[in-house]
């Protein structure tokens, strides 16, 4: 199983290990590059998919992001100073925005493609697919800035410290924005009848969600 390193499972020496991997990858070490892909591919994919709502497009964006990283590393254009993750996810967000602009020019809404995903079954434990669908729907109701914080935090697995480096925003601003976004989501879920996303009413959520999504 591919290991996905997020803020929840980082090891104390993760920074040193990452620096070593990046240094080796920049010299063409394929094993090191494979490890970097294993560490970050799914986090990049999750962020892209949450934003654009389409798995194929998310994979395409992920490919583009890693192609950029590989080219930069191979050309010696990156020196690790503990900011790899902010850099990686900044590239991802830029690609997502590019796709959004492209879709807008073509007259297609990226959000409109998310309908199949809302109904897709989720392998996550503890939450019903309908509850996850409601959460996705609630994310769509947030402003871009609030949604970005939530997705960087919970999909890409960035810490607030990394987000301050990536977004050039003060920590207090990000914490306040995150808190505000959580409150909006909670209100949205309350209004949708999902009173406790983790609570005992999962069965109720299932029935409500199924009715909502169909």
């Amino acid at each position: 199983m591919t290991r996905v390193a997020s803020r929840d499972d980082r090891e104390p020496d993760a920074g040193e290990r990452l620096a070593d991997l990046l240094a080796r990858a920049s010299t063409g070490d394929n094993d090191a590059w494979r490890s970097i892909i294993d560490l970050y591919a799914r986090r990049v994919f999750a962020l892209a998919k949450s934003r654009c709502g389409d798995a194929d497009l998310a994979e395409e964006i992920t490919q583009s992001v890693f192609a950029t990283v590989a080219s930069t590393l191979g050309a010696g254009g990156y020196t690790e100073q503990g900011r790899f993750e902010p850099w990686l996810f900044r590239i991802t967000m830029n690609r997502v925005r590019d796709e959004a602009r492209r879709a807008k020019r073509a007259g297609v809404s990226l959000e409109s493609t998310s309908a199949p995903i809302l109904a897709a079954p989720s392998p996550a434990r503890g939450l019903a697919p309908a509850t996850l669908a409601k959460l996705r729907q609630g994310l769509g109701e947030l402003s871009d800035a609030d949604r970005e914080i939530i997705e960087l935090r919970h999909h890409a697995g960035l810490s607030f410290k990394e987000m301050t480096e990536m977004l050039n925003e003060p920590l207090g601003t990000l914490l306040a924005r995150h808190h505000r976004a959580l409150k909006k989501l909670r209100n949205f879920l309350d209004a949708a009848g999902v009173t406790s996303p983790l609570g005992d009413n999962e069965a109720t959520d299932d029935s409500k969600g199924a009715g909502t999504e169909s």
């Binding site: 999750a46 897709a120 996550a124 509850t131 959460l135 919970h154 959580l182």
Partner: peptide, 16 residues
């Protein structure tokens, strides 16, 4: 809600 969002993120990563 945070915990639910963590699980949503996990679901998105697993859906790759």
């Amino acid at each position: 809600v945070e915990s639910a969002l963590d699980q949503l993120g996990q679901a998105e990563r697993s859906s790759a």
